[in-house]
Design a protein around this nucleic acid. Structure first.
Lengths: 346, 346
DNA sequence: TATTATAATAACAACGTTGTCAAAAAAATC
DNA sequence: GATTTTTTTGACAACGTTGTTATTATAATA
């Protein structure tokens, strides 16, 4: 025996209960599952013994044997984005209601981290995955298919139709924002877009272009700014923009995210620009603080809770029914008018 | 055989690799752990086979056998509080660096949910727990002791010295806030405290009392308001307060949380009160948006990242070294002066 | 070349469950 | 009271690992 018995407190197992209650361990196992094949009174005795010994099941053993872990993996590519909080919360709530738990992970827009996360989910025998992929066409998709794990994409459309998804129409979002500004007399509208590698940036740009086109406004390419989804970086980028060209060639900004709008708020404050008198701002997402900013931020609301809810519904139904085709849902964003946009006649 | 073979894609196991590489499964197991007892070239062959078959280990089996899950349970009592975001993020980062993952759960200030969460962590063979308990003297504490699982409290002091903790000195926080206001000429200071069942509310009140005492100001009990940590509720509560008594008997408010301050910002805006001219506000936590509010919120900064970092350090060291005493850390908050407090001479 | 020491591989029993099948006990039939 | 049926309980083999012990193959010694 090696020097010191390092073993942890030994867990109470079915076998201990068996001894305590005076039955074989396999009857105990059944009793614990409330299987009616075991007589009611012996079931009771066994349950009592279990309670007395503070028994709790070993989920590892259970999963190993049954191949059902009752856990769902969530892989997002940017956990720091408040956009996801509500979605995650909703997912958690819904899963819990069905007896599932979740494993959360962040791939930080990095394909190899994403790969690792995917493998981790598999290693942990996740019953399904809710997945916001870095790219919907990377090699990592192979992992999903070869292992046949049930998956729902959120915030990305697969380029393949053998996968479920819940998508928010980003094109529509920027379209709504742009039209609203145009309707209020704005013509020179800066698009403060996200990073180029984000597919949502693409879509966002498309919607913007479409709205301009529809209103016969020619797009000025210098009014397209690629940025990052973070308050800090947006703040800096926006300040830089002002130092570059001291005249202001735009009267309004559309941001890919409320966070970016918050960065602009801060910059504006420092530059002595009043919102919305000197500068109109529209955000996207409608995160929880947006309505509390000063002035309250006009923004495009993304139905984030709904994303979570639908994703779970789809996933659990596929896990539990196995059969059935693939579900594709496209959710629509909506304009929330508050006070960060000025209305002036053209 | 029952109608349809429902079994999932069979996982690739060590035995498959064994067949592929032509070795016994136990040599394969060792090779995969890079154990030098197996010859270098056979190790290589086995590793190649593993890669070829896209092998990934089954963590359930591994954990079951080794009694080490490499996961840490995090139990908080209010996941919706942004206060925790930074802490969680830090914990996750630190854990990942050491090859651990985390399981997050929210007990929503409910002892029986907390109990369930605790049992879940045990069931999942968590190697340790980072725990913000509903109450540090509930029956649930027994679970920790009888199962001997390594635990670090955050945001609560155990009433028992056989447990590690990382604590933020809430008393000091309100003390700092109160003194700062007094120094700036305020005498009638509303304490917008959290709910009564929170131990941090207690502490917060104590610090406030202490500061008043030190400055020979008698506390007016009507200036103590018990609330909830949520923007919405604080907003409503604050409006109610104004409708009750139309005169304003205070010139400044200290909030138990920045979220509450945000609620007040909104109420103030609607009431036509200017911050800080008509009302000074101090928050607590310094959540990420506070500096971006208008005006930027003066607040007491809570070292949230540090809490996460220390908690993980302590926990992992105890898990890996087993020996050693219990660690108790008390972190100090700090005043962040921004622009939500007016300075007028007494 | 036989013998011993060493390096490399293989066998096997756990870990705590589930689920199938066999055995025993109790109840129902003749 | 012996036989069959039904109810209830028990044995046992998985699940995919790890770790200990036993068996080979190879190298070193005599």
């Amino acid at each position: 025996m090696s020097s010191i018995e390092k073993r942890k407190h030994k867990q109470i197992t079915i076998k201990h209960i068996a001894r305590e209650a005076g039955f074989s361990f396999s009857t105990v196992a059944k009793a614990l599952r409330n299987d009616p094949v075991v007589r009611l009174d012996t079931r009771q005795k066994i349950l009592d013994a279990a309670r007395k010994l503070n028994y709790y099941p070993n989920l590892m053993a259970k999963t190993l044997r049954s191949r059902k872990s009752k856990t769902i993996g969530i892989i997002l590519n940017d956990l720091t984005n408040p956009l996801y909080y509500e979605t995650i919360e909703e997912i958690e709530k819904k899963l819990k209601k069905s007896g599932y738990t979740m494993i959360l992970s962040d791939s930080n827009f990095d394909l190899s981290i994403e790969r690792e996360n995917l493998i981790t989910m598999l290693s942990k025998n996740a019953d399904g995955i809710i997945f916001s992929p870095v790219s919907s066409s990377s090699d990592n998709m192979e992992i999903i298919f070869t292992n046949g794990i049930n998956t729902v994409f959120i915030d990305a459309k697969p380029d393949n139709d053998r996968i479920n998804y819940v998508y928010i129409d980003h094109q529509m979002a920027s379209f709504l924002a742009t039209e609203y500004l145009i309707d209020n007399g704005h013509k020179d509208i800066l698009l403060f877009n996200g990073p180029k590698y984000l597919s949502s940036s693409d879509e966002f740009l498309k919607g913007y272009r479409k709205a301009l086109e529809k209103n016969n406004i020619e797009m000025d390419e210098s009014l397209l700014l690629w940025g990052d989804i973070s308050i800090e970086k947006s703040y800096n980028k926006f300040l830089d923009l002002y130092h570059d060209k001291d005249s202001i060639p735009f009267s309004a900004v559309i941001c890919l995210s409320d966070l970016m709008a918050i960065g602009i708020y801060k910059a504006a404050r420092e530059l002595g620009l009043h919102i919305p008198e000197n500068l109109s701002v529209i955000g996207y997402d409608n995160i929880f603080v947006s309505e509390f900013l000063n002035p309250p931020l006009t923004t495009i609301h993304a139905p984030k809770k709904r994303v979570g809810l639908k994703a779970v519904e789809i996933l659990l139904s596929r896990i539990e029914n196995e059969n059935g085709g693939y579900t594709k849902i496209e959710l629509k964003p909506r304009l929330f008018v508050r006070e960060s946009v000025s209305r002036f006649s053209k």
